[in-house]
Design a protein around this nucleic acid. Structure first.
Length: 649
RNA sequence: GCCGAAGUAGCUCAGGGGUAGAGCGCAUCCUUGGUAAGGAUGAGGUCACGAGUUCAAUUCUCGUCUUCGGCUCCA
């Protein structure tokens, strides 16, 4: 007998060789129906694999990520099986699970291409094989056997994978006629898969390297119930409605023009209004945190970026050099603001008493992004960073870092961003040649970040090897409507630029010292931030950020003058108001402005004009009753104040 | 940049070898109305661009551009 410890601490005895499925059956028949895989001492296994010694066991269902992964992993094999049946001789690369399903990289024989029209027939075949409930069989083989098998099959992709595996760890999984090299784990049989949707075909380089062969990647998702697939499809439709590109067009926030150029956004009046409000908001916070606003030009001498190292490192990702017509002097569209700020730092001698110096600029930068990578406002070639550089003494680093985290928190709170992740990016300890600066400085900087996050109680994930070449960093990420992760704010420590620009301050010892630099951009870029904000709110911005806060709706043309009077009065109190004086009935005006997501509608007619009042309607909530114009102004100001209370400390 | 898909009115989309349609929007007029679509009339398109096949191409073929979904990259 062996002892099986369950997650709740219960210990049960089973005969040696018991399987995950048998344990589930012993617990409840419902669990036995729903269980998909099992972890044994932390390693996820097939349900049918015998457990031979005492173990800590956890059973996974669809509710757990591990369960879904097992489910989708088998689904990827099922898809491969169906594809192989239609296209014998297809080579298979890798077929992993992703956040929403799985994919398989394939290479059809004779250079054939798969078209989206064929996905349906593959889906059908998958469901046929699923209904046959083909058992999935695990088989452990030696490396030599594996090599022989896949050499026979003529599959160079799998042979390449096998060459990197340790002998004794190689397993095959088979269902029906289909066999694949795979670590597993898998479902007991294909019958678990009740609904399938192949979602996309895309090209993907073998092993992600563009020098390698391009394979065909087929994406799909499967579910244990048909109804779940239907819900998923509805969810995708809903997400598409939140797409910032769609809402941005509808709400007239921004546009693109081929005539202007790829990836160069044009901010329309309402978008510019929104962006301006965000800038004002941050400017005010930064003022409270002791930042000085600076302004620098959009171009700079090439040598400036040679000094900073950006030319060497990112020259190929920048717009190419532009020249003055007569002298042939070389300039670049600025890809970064920091070199300019460093020159401001150098514009006069600095004392240790002057530090930290905090320089902020809404600096527009231009970078070359590959054409295929451009995406709405989230990926553009010209964008404005809410950039700032803090020059401080090494002993001030942690404190300054914490203050920047505070600013990020203020912004996230003001905009109700709750679902963010924070990632600390440190060096790859195995590759010191990738980084510049002394190991000692790196140690100090990494410690400062880790400690600052701990002291601020920030939940973080730490990634080794993700640091910039010049220093470690802390990034804030948020998901968009379609579940894609976007990086927003970033805080980076830099020992490199102060060195390259020979930045100095005079210490209390009357000697020259080198300051440390923090690069930080809590929004990241205004473009990307607005995009994420649109998707986060579905265009229903918080009142203080809404370009058009109030629309006054006269009941008939007779009351247009009164409506304009109300509008003027509110605008005078800094409440952004317009009049809808179209020749339409009131119901129509309400509908149109509701759909335009206007937060407050004021209906005015004979009664209101007589009493100097307005009938208030809140977006999505309906009639709120009547009040005087003055009362309404106070009411709306109060709401805005509530949204921003306490944010500025 | 690479792979795949798509481009028809301002927007959303239908259509199809014989030079085009709907709804919304827009314009003009009628209507002057009380909380989510009042009515009439009208303007608006080189069917992305360029070649080819054909008596005839918006429709079929190829190329280019742009957009979309991925890949790669991201200071």
């Amino acid at each position: 007998m062996i002892k099986i410890t369950l997650p709740d601490g219960n210990v049960r005895e089973f005969k040696a060789g018991v399987t995950g499925m048998e344990i589930a059956e012993a617990i409840s028949s419902r669990l036995a129906r729903e269980v998909l895989s099992v972890s044994v001492n932390g390693e996820v296994w097939d349900l049918g694999r015998p457990i031979t010694a005492d173990a800590l066991v956890k059973l996974y269902t669809w509710e757990e990520r591990e369960g879904k992964e097992t489910f989708w992993h088998t689904s990827a094999h099922l898809m491969a099986q169906a594809i192989e049946e239609f296209y014998p001789g297809t080579l298979f690369g890798i077929g992993p699970t992703v956040d929403n399903g799985f994919y398989y990289d394939i290479d059809l024989p004779g250079g054939q291409q798969l078209s989206e029209k064929e996905l349906e027939k593959i889906e059908k075949r998958m469901m046929e094989r699923s209904r046959e409930k083909q058992p999935v069989v695990r088989q452990s083989i030696s490396k030599a056997e594996a090599i022989r098998l896949f050499t026979e099959k003529g599959d160079p992709l799998k042979l390449e994978l096998i060459s990197e595996l340790e002998d004794g760890t190689i397993t095959l999984y088979s269902q029906g006629q289909f066999t694949d090299l795979c670590r597993g784990p898998h479902l007991p049989d294909t019958g678990y898969i009740k609904a399938v949707k192949l979602t996309a075909i895309a090209g993907a380089y073998w092993r992600g390297n563009e020098k390698n062969k391009m394979l065909t990647r087929v994406y799909g998702i499967t579910f244990p119930k048909q109804k779940m697939l239907e819900e998923y499809l509805v969810m995708i439709e809903e997400a598409k409605k939140r797409d910032h590109r769609k809402i941005g067009k509808e709400m007239e926030l921004f546009t693109f023009s081929e005539a202007v150029g790829l990836g160069l956004p044009l901010w329309l009046p309402k978008g510019a209004q929104l962006r301006g409000l965000l800038e004002d908001f941050l400017r005010k916070i930064q003022k409270n945190f002791g930042y000085d606003q600076v302004i620098t030009p959009h171009i700079g001498d090439v040598n400036l970026y040679k000094t900073s190292g950006h030319y060497e490192k990112y020259g190929k990702d920048s717009f190419q050099v532009i020249k003055t017509p007569a002298e042939g002097e070389e300039y670049m569209l600025k890809p970064m603001n920091c070199p300019h700020h460093c020159e401001i730092y150098k514009s006069k001698p600095r004392s240790y008493k002057d530090l930290p110096v905090r320089m902020a600029e809404f600096g527009t930068v231009y970078r070359y992004e590959q054409s295929g990578e451009l995406h709405g406002l989230t990926r553009v070639r010209g964008f404005t960073q809410d950039d700032a550089h803090i020059y401080c003494r090494p002993d001030q680093l942690k404190e300054e870092f914490k203050k920047v985290i505070d600013i990020v928190f203020i912004i996230f709170r003001a905009l109700d961003f709750k679902d963010y992740t924070a990632q600390i990016s440190l060096r790859d300890p195995g590759k010191p040649e990738k980084y510049i600066g002394s190991a000692e400085n790196w140690d100090k900087a990494e410690r400062a970040i880790v400690e600052a996050c701990e002291e601020k109680g920030l939940q973080t994930r730490t990634e080794l090897g993700e640091a910039a070449f010049y220093g470690p960093k802390l990034d804030f990420m948020i998901k968009d409507a379609l579940g894609r992760n976007w990086q927003l704010g970033t805080i980076q420590v830099d020992y490199n630029l102060p060195e390259r620009f020979q930045l100095e301050y005079i210490g209390s010892d009357d000697k020259r010292h080198r300051p440390v630099m923090i690069h930080r951009a809590p929004f990241g870029s205004l473009e990307r931030f607005v995009a994420v904000l649109i998707e986060h709110t579905a265009g229903k911005f918080p009142l203080w950020l809404t370009p058009e806060q109030v629309v006054v709706l006269p009941i008939s043309e007779k009351f247009n003058d009164y409506a304009r009077k109300v509008s003027d009065e509110l605008n005078f109190s800094d409440i952004r108001t317009v009049v809808d004086d179209r020749n339409e009935k009131i119901g129509r005006k309400i509908r149109d402005n509701e759909l335009k997501r206007v937060p407050y509608l004021l209906v005015v007619g004979e009664k209101e004009e007589e009493t100097g009042s307005v009938a208030v309607r809140r977006q999505g909530e309906g009639d709120k009753g009547t009040m005087t114009v003055g009362e309404f102004a106070g009411f709306i100001r109060e709401e805005i104040k509530r949204q921003l209370t306490g944010l500025y400390n």
